[in-house]
């Protein structure tokens, strides 16, 4: 793939004393909206952690704009370009109020309090969340937390997003809001989900992480994969039959 922002080359990973979770994974990220499916424990979140430098692979290399990422400064640089939305929004929101949380990143990147506030408000407005600016983070609903978490990474103006099960535990309205936002975000992303309808709506291409390796999957194939998970080989009725 041309113009990749992040490239994973032959990445392998195993838990200390455990079996190999990722086996020679190759992936280029930077164009398009990519979905990632896989069974629980298959290594999807670990893959994200490796991209962000939170877990160390046993072997392989990670490249940012074609250059190998090794030093602390290079990792810091990578984290400025890649935004990571955690599975649990309570891990992502750690400041007392929404505006302080959204402004946290810009302040760390050297923005003045005035600039950081301005950027935070612009980002929140862009997502239709400006009314939440002065709310206490732990009082937000699950859906609001998820969208504010997204704001905390968008305010850093990343070039690529990693989204770990963003539609998890969302009510239909929040799920729709998130889907609408993802459809208009002009950024490439890699999105983990078990929600096949969500993936179909928000992703151009879907990979499956199976047996430690990545496989590109057609949507129809993935649907049948989902059916096998849900129904096994038992006879079952379809809603539209």
């Amino acid at each position: 793939m041309k113009d990749s922002i992040i490239e994973l080359r032959d990445i392998s990973y195993h838990h200390p004393g455990g079996e190999e979770l990722l086996k020679g994974v190759n992936l280029q990220l930077g164009q398009g909206r990519v979905g990632l499916v896989g069974a629980n424990g298959s290594g999807k979140t670990t893959l994200f952690n490796i991209v962000m430098g939170l877990s160390q692979p046993a072997s392989g290399a990670l490249l940012l704009d074609g250059a190998r990422v090794e030093s602390r400064d290079q990792w810091r640089q990578l984290r400025r370009h890649v935004g990571y939305l955690f599975q649990d929004a309570d891990d992502q929101l750690f400041s007392p109020t929404v505006i302080e949380d959204v402004a946290f990143g810009p302040l760390n990147l050297g923005a003045t309090p005035g600039e950081a506030r301005q950027r935070a408000m612009t980002t929140l407005s862009g997502l239709g969340l400006d009314h939440l600016a002065h709310r206490v983070t732990h009082h937000l609903s699950g859906g609001e937390k998820k969208l504010v978490s997204l704001a905390t990474i968008l305010v850093m103006e990343p070039r690529l997003l990693l989204l770990d099960e963003p539609s998890n535990n969302l009510d239909p309205a929040s799920r729709e809001s998130l889907m609408a936002i993802l459809k208009v975000i002009p950024l490439p992303y890699l999105l983990i989900s078990h929600d096949f309808d969500f993936l179909q709506e928000t992703c151009d291409i879907i990979y499956s992480l199976t047996g430690g390796g990545l496989e590109e999957g057609a949507t129809a194939q993935l649907h049948s994969h989902a059916h096998i998970h849900l129904h096994g080989d038992r006879p079952h009725a379809h809603g539209h039959d």
Binding site: F86, D91, F104, G105, N108
Partner: peptide
């Protein structure tokens, strides 16, 4: 996890 989230945002 929180520490990781902070580091990822330049802390």
């Amino acid at each position: 996890r929180v520490q990781q989230a902070m580091v990822l945002r330049g802390f």
